[in-house]
Nucleic acid binder design. Structure first.
Lengths: 114, 114
DNA sequence: GTTCTTGCTACTGAAATCGTAGCAAAGATG
DNA sequence: CATCTTTGCTACGATTTCAGTAGCAAGAAC
């Protein structure tokens, strides 16, 4: 009874809700995991240490943070730099750039609620 | 001991990891819930019925789908049209448009893995 | 009437997450 | 040297969320 190894979802592999492993499905699986979007968001500026990142996310549990960071490192979206902490990779920054307009959208969105 | 009512996260209210309720934080909380991104993605085209949407997402459980749909309706991102099924609202389509470039990004991303 | 489909609720077990405690390593301070 | 702090992270039980299956009420088609 060996436990299945837990890793980040990978293109070509089966992921949640998709047997094809199409890249965009894999990405949606990865980004849809709790705290992932937030972590990327908090890394939009300078690199953050583990604890700083944890604090920035409002004190999420270190076990979950560590799991998410492992997945994001595995996916080459985040990297760990010695003496600096965690930072987005080049492609991680590209990904975040796609997400940047969400701020503006969310401001408009607020007004439509109440 | 009344249970707290379960609703979608709302701007101005406390959300996971943020006491300020800043719009973008609320949005990240909402989008980071399991299946939300995928559901939006599957609604990019024509409206889908509940069951069609469920099938498109690879057979996720109806209870979760219903919960997500309730949140997204509450957030005015998805609407239910009589005799058509579920569809994105206007602002829902705008939101998805922000996310559209993810397909292209994910294709590049794949090549960087292995 | 029966047979479909559709939208959804109910229920149980599994998995993910939370919250807290704490430890080993490295650096600063005395 | 000793001690204090910070940092990255692991362990563990409690809670929440999700998965998976069953099934029901309402409507349409027959």
């Amino acid at each position: 009874m060996t436990k299945p190894p837990k890793t980040a979802p990978r293109p070509g592999r089966r992921v949640r809700g998709s047997t094809t492993g199409r890249p965009v499905m894999v990405l949606l699986d990865l980004l849809g995991r709790r705290w992932v979007l937030r972590v990327l968001w908090e890394l939009r500026g300078d690199p953050l240490t583990f604890r700083a990142l944890q604090a920035a996310c409002g004190g999420l549990s270190p076990s979950v943070l560590n799991a998410r960071l492992a997945e994001l490192r595995d996916s080459k979206i985040v990297e760990q730099r010695p003496d600096e902490g965690y930072a987005l990779t080049r492609q991680g920054r590209e990904l975040l750039a796609q997400l940047a307009p969400l701020t503006a959208w969310s401001e408009k969105w607020v007004k439509s609620l109440d």
